[in-house]
């Protein structure tokens, strides 16, 4: 459970951009506007000593009205062990400002989120696909991406393989 002081000082500083403050399973969640996300993170890091970025990810809500993704930042203060989760809604194709100038470890996680959801982070010097090959088609963790891959992923390796090992047509996948 988060100290109310943190929420209060956040509310005082970013009055309009705080959308919602909630709690789930003992974790505090603060939802902010995307436009002020980077400032909120910077403020949390420098003024409220949330110096440890645990992870950064996104959640896909394709059926939700409005913006499709939630970007999630889990922060921790090494001094007080407070934890807070910052969220912001992002539409498909919308860019997010990178947090890599605040936390170094954001680079890797942003690469991963870009790889899995297709959310572009601007000002990230090393933004590239973290896991999938650079010329991969589609973003695997979006809800519409099939669990066992698509036709593209079946044939992806063909260009690297000799003739006998290429994808066989008779191989079928479960629906």
């Amino acid at each position: 459970m988060l100290d109310t002081k943190v929420v209060d000082s956040l509310k005082a500083k970013f009055k309009d951009s705080i959308v919602e403050v909630s709690e789930s399973c003992g974790d505090s969640i603060i939802k902010v506007e995307l436009s002020s996300l980077h400032d909120v993170l910077k403020f949390l890091h420098s003024d409220l000593s949330f110096d440890y970025l645990l992870f950064l990810t996104a959640v896909d809500y394709p059926k939700r009205e409005g913006k499709r993704f939630d970007v999630v930042y889990q922060l921790r203060s090494t001094a007080t062990f407070d934890e807070v989760r910052i969220k912001a809604e992002v539409a498909d194709g919308e860019d997010v400002e990178s947090a890599s100038d605040i936390w170094g470890c954001a680079i890797g996680d942003e690469c991963e989120t870009y790889d899995m959801f297709g959310i572009k982070y601007i000002n990230n010097s090393e933004l590239r696909r973290a896991f999938m090959p650079d010329d991969w088609n589609g973003y695997p963790l979006r809800k519409e991406y099939p669990l066992k891959g698509d036709d593209f992923s079946d044939r992806y390796l063909d260009k690297y393989l000799p003739n006998g090992q290429r994808h066989k047509i008779e191989h079928t996948r479960m629906p």
Binding site: S24, C25, G26, D27, I29, L54, F55, T57, V59, V72, Q74, E83, R85
Partner: peptide, 19 residues
């Protein structure tokens, strides 16, 4: 709801963020 559970692993902090 959503939770973030973690444990001290030999490699470091392993956490699961579940929605």
């Amino acid at each position: 709801g959503e939770s973030y559970g973690y444990a001290e692993n030999p490699t470091g902090e392993l956490g699961f963020f579940i929605v």
